[in-house]
Design a binder for these strands. Sequence first.
DNA 1: CTGTACTGGGGTAATTTGGGAG
DNA 2: ATTGTCCAAATTACCCCAGTAC
Lengths: 67, 67
Amino acid sequence: MTITHEAGERLMTPGEVAAMFRVDPKTVTRWASAGRIGSIRTPGGHRRFRESEVRTLLDGLTSEAHR
Amino acid sequence: MTITHEAGERLMTPGEVAAMFRVDPKTVTRWASAGRIGSIRTPGGHRRFRESEVRTLLDGLTSEAHR
DNA sequence: CTGTACTGGGGTAATTTGGGAG
DNA sequence: ATTGTCCAAATTACCCCAGTAC
């Protein structure tokens, strides 16, 4: 069957992710730059985030453990 | 792996490519015009994109996991 | 040939990017 | 150390309508 790779993921824009976390889009950009959240870029250089990963991160916030 | 011409290459419409990158179909058209992505024109002038190239693009532009 | 959906081109807002400073 | 804001430039999104795809 088909290898569900990146291609099958729903992607989100920086603004959408920012709205979910209630932070500034710039902050999301920094998370991406720091490698805290995976991101893929359009040929034009804009970032897109995987919806599944965003949700995972949001889940992780609930039972946070402050390493 | 080079710029080979595969006979059984599956082609994608601008709308399909746009959905994968989470962008507007017009944006994909701009990428083609700018030469950022290879495109093939139908006799009617509509663009078609190679699926292999699109996936390679998605894969290659997947930058994350830094630390 | 008819009909629906999608695409191409142009033009104009909105979003995103990157750096710098608070 | 993390975040929010300011700036200029680039990329992208949405509007129109005629033509193509099937």
